[in-house]
Design a protein around this nucleic acid. Structure first.
Lengths: 178, 178
DNA sequence: GTGTCTGCAAAACCTTTGCATGATC
DNA sequence: GATCATGCAAAGGTTTTGCAGACAC
């Protein structure tokens, strides 16, 4: 099995055909909520970010485009997008949450480079199977799960081989990764 | 393989023979830090807690015993204990961090009951092997990792079977578990 | 005695919320 | 026109930090 078999190609779903707008609008209508200009703008921006991003980064991107929205509106909109499953949030212990749009994506796990903060997605069905087995045996009903692997990516390592040791040393410091 | 094979028995290492004191004192001495009364008290309290606990819970326990320490000292001491590997911290998305003392414990993963907040430890070597395989293939140097399974434990389920559905519904709301 | 610790209160940090104003249906 | 959304600023929670006095070596 080669590395490519694990990787998830974000570019594949770069073009969703705008279907997310339909999902969002339906979700809002169903609950008597309004499809406002701010929500429209934010939805497009979020689906235009093909990496994981923080609320702050989203705010900055909006400002860059001259299409500002307030911090409160950004957080409130992200919250609605989470509820309607168009968005997922992940905590990598960096203080702020990282978001990614998920339009019918399968579950996946993450590699997080402690140096460049790059996030790589992967999926391993056998890990999933073993998780199911563990919860079955222990009588635990799984609702969700998260597997995060922290370390140094190949690019960072080749540009500075000492990184691994330095980050390993501080890995058991204040903010937890585990 | 039965459920017991996965479980980690915390009671086994309830008595460390006070060896952690030696480790802590050595660590402090090596860096020109002082083994103060507050640190001694906190170390004992931490190693007397055989479950996961938050900073707040630790503070409360200290107050109950009439042996108060300030919030600042508690946080600062926890931080030192993390550095010398006598303690580990885990974030289950509850707002505060959960700590557990680790005196030469092997790595393990966690089940977190969303209802009663009970934390169960388990270990599955095959999951670990698959993680190594993934990082190898992707050229990623793993430093640490965390696998957390969220759901409802057997006890909670038997006392209220509707819990699973209720928690599943709110699982994609604001605070992330993934 | 020098250098580190402690406690207090204030700050930091990300995120949420109250309220008056403005937009949507 | 009723209701919901927005923006601002203030509050929320946990954790960190600055500083003056107290302790350890």
């Amino acid at each position: 099995m080669s590395g490519e078999d694990y990787l998830i190609d974000k570019a594949q779903d770069a073009d969703t055909g705008g279907e997310e707008e339909f999902v969002f609008e339906s979700f809002l209508k169903d609950r008597g909520l309004k499809y406002t200009q701010a929500r429209k703008t934010l939805l497009r921006k979020v689906f235009g970010m093909h990496d994981h991003f923080t609320a702050e980064q989203l705010l900055d991107r909006l400002k860059d485009d001259g299409v500002a929205a307030s911090k409160a509106t950004v957080y409130r909109t992200l919250s609605v997008l989470l509820e309607c499953d168009l968005l997922a949030a992940h905590d990598f212990g960096e203080g702020a949450l990282y978001y990614e749009h998920t339009f019918g994506h399968d579950h996946h796990d993450h590699l997080f480079c402690l140096h460049c903060k790059r996030i790589t997605e992967f999926r391993d069905d056998r890990i999933e199977e073993h998780q199911d087995r563990v919860t079955d045996k222990l009588g635990f009903e799984m609702i969700t799960h998260s597997l995060k692997i922290y370390g140094i990516c190949a690019d960072c390592r080749s540009s500075d081989p000492g990184l691994v040791e330095r980050f390993a040393a501080q890995s058991r410091m204040r903010r937890p990764r585990s």
